[in-house]
Design a protein around this nucleic acid. Structure first.
Length: 202
DNA sequence: ACGAAGATTGGCT
DNA sequence: GCCAATCTTCGTC
């Protein structure tokens, strides 16, 4: 079942981030259907979260999607190369988003391999936000795509990830965000071999 | 108008 | 492990 818009418009983006684990992200791009199970996410909770692009309600052309109602894609380019896929959540004017950091390839694996210029299936195919987005054919032109459309959407296939099977840790690559950089808002499915980096737990 | 930095990745040493 | 790739965005001049 396709997740309804009400799944995304909820207030608590941390909760939405965790519940997205075990859901299926489906794209129908360039006539190729690809499906990946979401195994790793990160929550970005503006305006207070200093690691969020929309921190302090910072409103620019890039961050406009943050201020719309939850349930659409937010795709932006990182380091000039990578197209990172996020889901906008929360109510209008509430700038929250969830970054999809890794998926487990489920369907259309040949297409994914071709898009990534790889010839062998391994976590390298879809681990990391740049890799996951590229394997699914997601491009910056898909920014603001409605997740109720027939282009990109997320399905609930009845799997529930128990709280004990969710690992929480610091988000990746946000050290410069001060206190916010320490928040444990990265989540992944315990034991999944498809996550982008193992969490260093002491 | 200019320049530095960025929610990363892959190739080379 | 280190570093270049590559270009948009944003702060500053």
């Amino acid at each position: 079942m396709k997740l309804p818009q009400s799944f995304y418009t909820r207030h608590d983006v941390i909760q939405v981030s965790k519940e997205l684990l075990g859901k299926y992200l489906i794209t129908n791009i360039d006539g190729e259907r690809t499906v990946g199970k979401i195994v790793e996410t990160e929550a970005y909770r503006g305006p207070d979260d200093q690691a969020c692009h929309a921190r302090n309600n910072h409103r620019t052309e890039r961050t406009l999607p943050f201020f719309k109602e939850g349930g659409m894609a937010y795709v932006y380019i990182c380091y000039g190369i990578h197209h990172l896929f996020n889901v906008i959540t929360g109510a209008e004017e509430m700038p929250h988003a969830v970054l999809i950091r890794a998926i487990e390839p489920i369907e259309g694996i040949e297409t994914m391999l071709k898009r990534r210029n790889l010839d062998q299936l391994s976590p390298r195919l879809t681990a990391g936000p740049g890799s996951a987005g590229k394997s699914l054919g997601i491009h910056k032109t898909h920014n603001e795509t409605d997740l109720q459309s027939e282009l990109i959407w997320i399905e609930d296939r009845g799997e529930v990830i128990a709280e004990k099977d969710i690992v929480a840790g610091k988000r990746v690559g946000v050290e410069s965000a001060g206190e916010s950089g320490l928040l444990p808002w990265r989540f992944y499915i315990k034991g999944s071999k498809w996550v982008s980096k193992p969490l260093i737990v002491k």
